[in-house]
Computed example of a mutant assay.
Amino acid sequence: MAGVLWMRLAILVFVATAALHPQRSLAADEDPLQDFCVKDTTQKLHVNGFPCKDPAQVQASDFASDSLKKPGNTSNALGVAVTPANVLTFGGLNTQGVSAARIDFAPHGLNPPHVHPRAPEILFLAKGTLLVGFVTSTPDNKLFAQTIQAGELFIFPRGLVHFQLNVGYGAALAFSAFNSQNPGTSQVAKVLFASTPPIDDAVLEKALQLNAADVQRLRSLISKT
């Protein structure tokens, strides 16, 4: 009997607490704004993001940026230049939960398979023709790919591997938007073959069914890309 009474009391306390703190009871943790936030016991204050400028020192120019105004340099092995406008380059975006990027493609240029761990990406093609696509997570690993033309949009879901390839006859230009001030980017090839320190060769050989010579060749190629 006592156990039943204690159970009823616990339920009443839970309901009362939820009623008094409805937002707290329904809300989850905020999304992270960086890759990790290890607790530092020597610091009195550390935030998941960046501290705020004194409002008295804020000016209109803090909310403007020409980050995406100029074309990027596509003279590289991939023929692509990604110019971000995120909180790292545009301070006015701090805490706003948005960012953007400009992507310039040389003919046949490729924005290689990569992921944004903290945001989906919506891409607007301003010029040219792109083959775009993403792959779902396991167990299906299904590819969704489409050729898009200037004026069209494509959405890449958060955290999924995706790519863009210029399949037109000239240069291409796209703009992307994200619902994170710092969505992060991890290129699949660089994560595997150009990490610091390097992933053990035995891991790559077994996971990708490569021999030692293949792993070394790919390390050399991708570190220069």
Score class of each variant (00 low, 15 high):
K39C: 08
K39Y: 09
K39W: 07
D40H: 04
D40I: 06
D40M: 01
T41Y: 02
T42A: 09
T42K: 08
Q43I: 11
L45Y: 05
N48F: 11
P51T: 05
P51Q: 10
K53Y: 11
K53V: 08
K53M: 09
D54Y: 00
D54K: 02
A56T: 07
A56M: 12
A56K: 13
A56I: 00
V58T: 02
A60Y: 05
A60V: 07
A60P: 12
A60N: 11
F63Q: 00
A64E: 14
A64M: 15
S65G: 03
S67T: 00
L68F: 09
L68Y: 10
K69H: 15
K70W: 15
P71W: 12
N73V: 01
L78P: 00
L78Y: 03
G79W: 00
G79L: 01
G79E: 00
V80D: 09
A81T: 03
A81V: 01
T83H: 04
P84M: 12
A85M: 14
A85P: 08
N86Y: 14
N86Q: 10
V87S: 13
L88M: 12
T89W: 08
T89G: 10
F90A: 01
G91V: 01
G91A: 10
N94Q: 06
N94E: 02
Q96D: 02
G97D: 03
G97R: 03
V98I: 15
V98L: 15
S99G: 04
A100L: 15
R102G: 00
D104Y: 01
F105P: 10
F105Y: 15
A106V: 03
P107T: 06
P107L: 10
H108K: 14
H108N: 13
L110F: 03
N111E: 15
N111Q: 13
N111A: 14
P112C: 11
P113H: 02
P113A: 04
P113Y: 05
V115S: 11
V115L: 11
P117S: 04
E121G: 08
F124E: 04
L125A: 03
A126F: 12
L130S: 13
L130K: 14
L131K: 13
G133L: 06
F134M: 01
F134K: 01
F134T: 05
V135F: 04
T136N: 02
S137N: 13
S137M: 09
S137C: 11
D140C: 04
D140I: 04
K142H: 12
L143A: 10
Q146T: 14
T147C: 10
I148S: 00
I148W: 00
Q149N: 15
Q149G: 07
Q149H: 12
A150T: 09
G151K: 03
G151C: 05
E152W: 02
F154H: 05
F154V: 14
F154W: 03
F154T: 11
F156E: 08
F156Y: 13
P157A: 05
P157R: 07
R158L: 15
G159V: 01
L160S: 07
V161L: 14
V161M: 14
H162C: 10
Q164T: 13
Q164Y: 00
Q164F: 01
L165V: 13
N166V: 06
N166S: 03
V167K: 14
V167C: 13
G168S: 05
G168N: 05
Y169Q: 15
Y169R: 15
A171Q: 11
A171M: 08
A172M: 08
A174E: 08
F175W: 09
N179M: 05
S180L: 04
S180G: 06
S180A: 11
Q181P: 00
Q181H: 01
